[in-house]
């Protein structure tokens, strides 16, 4: 069964089309990253999948049901972007309050353990650091024991250690067969963690594939070296040339051919071949 099926999904706010006839299917068990610049429609799309926003046209199915029924059934857990916590209550009380509201929740101890909340159970929600608050939000997202987890920029405000710990916990959650859809600006995270990356721009899908496929869409490799400053555009496969300090960087559609020709010159040294980062892929896809 598919976790999410979007058909012709459209949402407009006045003159702005936030989501434009989106068709997307996420099979159960997949870990999918949603990438795009601000205003690409990522949050609007996730809100429609969660049943918080009604689409103007098109349909959303979550495990074969409408989003609100899926939510009531406890099939979906979510971390909202800038999601707030109830103000001025101890974390333990907040968790107790929420724990009674799910159809088939994980045990409270399990949630506290997985989100590493033991040290802050007595803290007030208005005294939490950004990372601590994010851990509480994460606890609320997994509390339902959902088959589908939707995370809108989940690691915002976390330091490097917290981020690593977060993804380690996510690993155990996904090993249990859950579907995960996450929006992020940390493109290395998407590349590292997701099975599939969908790039959105202006409410449409501009690319859909694995991290390496996304890079392949941009095509080519980068060849950096030190050598005589001259025009290398004549070499086979070279699409672009750039001077970066003392180094020259060529973009090539056929790195093997370019390298063979380039290395014939003895003055060329310190050659380095790299695939473009997802960041580069992203920038050229949405521009």
């Amino acid at each position: 069964m598919d976790a999410i099926t979007l058909t012709g999904l459209t949402k407009t706010y006045g003159a702005l089309t936030a989501v434009d006839a989106l068709d997307l299917t996420v099979p159960a068990g997949q870990i999918m990253a949603l990438l795009g610049p601000n205003g690409a429609g990522k949050s609007t799309t996730t809100e429609m999948v969660l049943g918080l926003t009604k689409p103007d046209a098109g349909t959303v199915e979550v495990f074969g049901a409408d989003p609100v029924s899926a939510m009531r059934r406890g099939d979906v857990g979510a971390m909202l972007q800038n999601g707030v916590l109830l103000w001025d209550v101890p974390v333990r009380r907040l968790l107790t309050l929420m724990h009674g509201l799910y159809a088939h929740p994980l045990s409270l101890d399990d949630v506290i353990d997985r989100a590493d909340l033991t040290p802050i159970l007595k803290s007030n929600t208005n005294k939490l650091s950004g990372g601590q608050a994010q851990r509480v939000r994460f606890a609320l997202a997994m509390m339902a024991d959902p088959g589908l987890l939707i995370l809108d920029e989940p690691t915002v405000g976390m330091d490097v250690d917290a981020r690593r710990a977060f993804w380690a916990t996510m690993d155990t959650l996904t090993a249990e067969g859950r579907t995960v859809v996450f929006a992020t600006h940390y493109l290395d995270e998407a590349d590292e963690f997701a099975d599939r990356i969908v790039v959105l721009n202006d409410g449409r899908i501009v690319a859909d594939g694995t991290g390496s496929q996304i890079k392949a869409v941009v095509g080519g490799r980068r060849i950096g070296f030190t050598g005589p400053a001259r025009d290398y555009a004549g070499l086979p496969g070279v699409a672009a040339q750039e001077q970066r300090g003392a180094r020259i960087v060529l973009t090539s559609t056929d790195s093997d051919a370019t390298l063979r020709a380039l290395l014939a010159d003895d003055a060329v040294r310190d050659v380095e071949v790299s695939a473009p980062s997802l960041e580069d892929a992203f920038v050229s896809l949405v521009s």
Partner: peptide
């Protein structure tokens, strides 16, 4: 926005 969080429960 807490109401939205509540609407992510049953």
């Amino acid at each position: 926005g807490w109401f939205r969080q509540l609407m992510l429960t049953s």
